[in-house]
């Protein structure tokens, strides 16, 4: 503390009201002063990567470990890479990521079909649980959807004629 005080002795009154008990982050944070060393801690060994990991531009290097699930690919991957040119404070970061997520859904369906697996979307949406616990609503929803589809279909057909 004395060394720090020496650094600021040209500022009249520096630190006279400092109160170490004024620590609103306690007890969630056990303040050690390590914050003032910034990011210069002894780093853990770094994970070796065989897949592409995107990095926030708000940090200088990759973190020591990362998940390797689903690396960026396809059109959604292009958008994700673009998003990482912007900081986390920018819509330029998040909006392309959200768009990429939606495009990725279509890519997923195409990949499924390419692999010979036609996705069972009702099952993926938990229709079995609806049938078991929410049957009345499921039937109502199905009937309503069928009725709307029929009306649309009929309207379109009569227009063509």
């Amino acid at each position: 503390m004395e060394n720090i005080a020496d650094q600021y002795k040209h500022i009249k009154g520096w630190g006279v009201d400092a109160d170490p008990t004024n620590e609103p982050t306690h007890p969630m944070k056990k303040y050690t002063g390590d914050d003032h060393n910034r990011i210069n801690w002894q780093r853990p060994a770094l994970q070796q990567y065989t897949v592409e990991i995107l990095k926030s531009n708000e940090r200088p290097t990759l973190s020591a470990v990362n998940g390797t699930s689903v690396p960026p690919s396809g059109l959604s991957g292009v958008l994700r890479r673009y998003a990482f040119k912007f900081s986390e404070s920018s819509y330029g970061h998040w909006l392309p990521l959200l768009l990429a997520d939606r495009i990725n859904v279509v890519e997923g369906i195409i990949d499924d079909i390419k692999e010979g697996h036609f996705p069972n979307i009702p099952a993926e949406r938990g229709i079995a649980a609806d049938w078991k616990y929410n049957r009345k609503a499921l039937i109502q929803k199905t009937v309503a959807m069928a009725a709307v589809s029929f009306i649309l279909f009929t309207a379109l057909r009569s227009k063509r004629k």
Partner: peptide
């Protein structure tokens, strides 16, 4: 080992997420 973990902010580790 990072400054955040050392201060028991284990939910804010700086060495586990690059993204």
């Amino acid at each position: 080992e990072c400054a955040f973990c050392k201060q028991e902010l284990y939910g804010n580790c700086h060495e586990s997420n690059s993204q």
